[in-house]
Simulated scan of single mutants.
Amino acid sequence: MLIANLIKKQQQRVANNALQWQQQQKLLQAEKWLLKQRSLQFLGSTPGLVLSFAAGALMQMRHNSIVKTVRSTLGFSWLRQFL
């Protein structure tokens, strides 16, 4: 009788944990979808388009020696101060 009660309680815990996990997965999926929608909305906005264009322009110039020099001197100097 005692073992049967313990097994029943354990099964209830497992069922509750499974239900919580499913709810967390649904919530995570909803948050992921919402983030995707917000990202697409931002990329379609004016600041998003400007940012995307600037990143693309910089990526095409990444092999330029002037860009490499500026990036090496300015890009990581502020980071070294914090580390």
Rank of each mutant, 00 (worst) to 15 (best):
V50M: 10
A18F: 00
Q22C: 00
V67A: 06
Q37F: 01
Q24G: 04
E31Y: 02
S72I: 01
A54L: 05
A54D: 06
K8C: 12
N64M: 12
A30I: 12
Q37R: 06
Q37E: 12
R38Q: 14
H63S: 11
L58S: 04
L34M: 10
A15R: 00
A57Y: 00
Q25H: 10
A57S: 03
F53V: 07
Q11W: 05
L35A: 15
F76R: 13
Q60R: 14
L40I: 12
L2N: 15
F76E: 12
R62P: 09
L74K: 01
Q60G: 09
N16L: 15
M1W: 04
F76N: 03
V70F: 02
N5H: 04
L74Q: 05
T69V: 03
I7R: 15
G56H: 01
Q41F: 06
Q11I: 07
K32W: 02
F42L: 07
A15S: 02
I66A: 14
G75E: 04
V70N: 07
G75V: 01
Q23L: 13
F42S: 01
K9Q: 11
N64R: 04
E31H: 03
K8S: 13
H63Y: 13
V14T: 06
K26V: 03
W33A: 15
L35K: 12
Q24A: 08
R62W: 04
Q22T: 03
I7M: 13
R13I: 09
Q23W: 12
H63W: 07
Q10I: 05
L19T: 09
S65A: 11
K8G: 07
S52C: 05
M61T: 04
Q25N: 14
A15T: 00
Q10G: 13
Q25L: 13
F42T: 00
R71P: 08
K36C: 09
Q22P: 12
G44L: 04
F42V: 04
L28W: 03
L51A: 09
Q29F: 01
K68W: 07
L43F: 01
L74C: 03
Q23H: 15
K36V: 02
R71A: 06
L34K: 10
L35M: 09
V14W: 03
V70M: 08
A15K: 08
N5S: 03
V14E: 05
Q24Y: 08
I3H: 05
I3K: 12
K32N: 14
W33K: 13
L49V: 07
L19D: 14
L27N: 14
T69R: 02
L34H: 11
R71D: 09
Q37N: 09
S52F: 01
G75I: 00
G56N: 07
V50W: 10
Q25V: 10
G44Q: 10
L6S: 10
N16M: 14
F42M: 12
F76C: 09
L43Y: 00
N17R: 03
L28Y: 05
S72K: 04
K32S: 10
I3L: 06
K9C: 05
Q23Y: 15
R62A: 08
L27I: 11
F42Q: 02
L34T: 05
L40G: 11
N16P: 15
Q41L: 10
